[in-house]
């Protein structure tokens, strides 16, 4: 590692720690939450933003050490575009397989057959 100005040192450290904490909480949620649909929330939101924080740290580090470097943004953009899509498909799969929901889930569907994937 090369020497950094003091402000950059602190700012980069802040973003990296913030990102790592979010990713940690995301995985904790994956472990702790009661049913599949609830567990879906943690990785799609928290882990994605956690990686976003790490990527901001990386951009700042390489931009201060050797010239503007923005290519890490590609990973961030890609993750933020794809996270909702994979979450949506997994939620569809969960509904399709009729996974058990936790007992305090309230169902406000008026026409459940509207959302079933069955071809009957």
């Amino acid at each position: 590692m090369t020497e950094l100005p003091v402000w950059a040192d602190w700012v980069i450290s802040f973003f990296i720690i913030l990102g790592a904490s979010f990713a940690f909480i995301g995985s904790l949620g994956l472990l702790r939450l009661p049913d599949f649909m609830a567990r879906l929330h943690a990785p799609t939101k928290n882990t994605t933003l956690g990686v976003g924080g790490v990527i901001i740290g990386s951009i700042l580090y390489f931009s201060t050490t050797d010239g503007l470097s923005l290519h890490e943004l590609l990973i961030a953009v890609f993750l933020f575009l794809t996270a909702p899509i994979s979450a949506h498909l997994l939620a569809k799969a969960g509904l399709h397989l009729e996974l058990e929901l936790s007992e305090n889930t309230r169902d406000f569907r008026t026409k459940p057959e509207q959302y079933s994937d069955k071809d009957d």
Binding site: F22, L28, R32, L33, P34, A42, N46, N104, T105
Partner: peptide, 16 residues
Amino acid sequence: IAAIILRPRKSIKPAL
């Protein structure tokens, strides 16, 4: 979400 994850798991109220 972080606040919800860190609180006891019985107290969340999911809904469709």
